[in-house]
Amino acid sequence: SNIDFNPVEDEDSSRILFEIKCHFNLVSEKNNDEYKLENRKLRFVYLSKLNDEVTDDKKLLDEIEKFYDNQGYPEDMNTFIEYMPQDSYTNCKILILRFHEFLNLEGEQLRLI
């Protein structure tokens, strides 16, 4: 059974984060460590799903870029965003490799928390 994948729209991610916040009874918005952790988990799940479902590299980078823009430009994602300045030469394949490295590291770190 193949699951249809529709990227989370900005308003959906905001609603989901609001529900997470309410569920955990978080008082101090985005400065709360618990909120940051839940946001990080949601980001990991979303990006993993994108990675699994979008097979075209250019389209994948475009979808990642939309997510990055909607999430307020998280600095830890800069290395695989096409329009961000890079330390060295990059192309589509290199950006995808960096994205996969990011996902693997995030997955490992989140499992340890």
Rank of each mutant, 00 (worst) to 15 (best):
S1M: 13
N6T: 00
P7G: 03
D10L: 08
E11G: 03
D12V: 02
R15I: 10
I16R: 11
I16D: 02
I16H: 05
L17Y: 04
F18H: 14
F18A: 15
E19M: 15
K21E: 02
C22W: 10
H23T: 08
F24I: 00
N25A: 07
N25F: 10
N25G: 12
V27S: 04
S28P: 00
K30Q: 09
K30M: 09
K30N: 12
K30D: 07
N31P: 02
E34F: 07
E34H: 03
Y35T: 04
K36T: 02
K36W: 07
L37H: 08
N39R: 15
N39G: 05
R40Q: 03
R40D: 01
L42Y: 02
R43Q: 02
R43L: 01
F44I: 12
Y46S: 03
Y46E: 07
S48T: 13
S48Q: 13
K49L: 06
N51M: 00
D52R: 11
E53A: 08
V54M: 13
T55Y: 07
T55F: 10
D57V: 12
D57K: 15
K58Y: 08
L60I: 06
L60D: 04
L61H: 09
L61V: 05
I64Q: 02
E65M: 12
K66V: 04
F67Y: 13
D69I: 04
N70T: 13
P74W: 09
P74C: 05
T79G: 10
E82Y: 09
Y83S: 04
Y83C: 03
Q86T: 02
Q86V: 00
D87M: 14
Y89M: 15
T90I: 11
N91D: 14
C92V: 15
I94E: 11
L95V: 13
L95I: 08
R98C: 08
F99C: 07
H100F: 02
F102I: 12
L105W: 11
L105H: 07
E106K: 06
G107P: 03
E108K: 09
E108T: 06
E108M: 05
I113P: 06
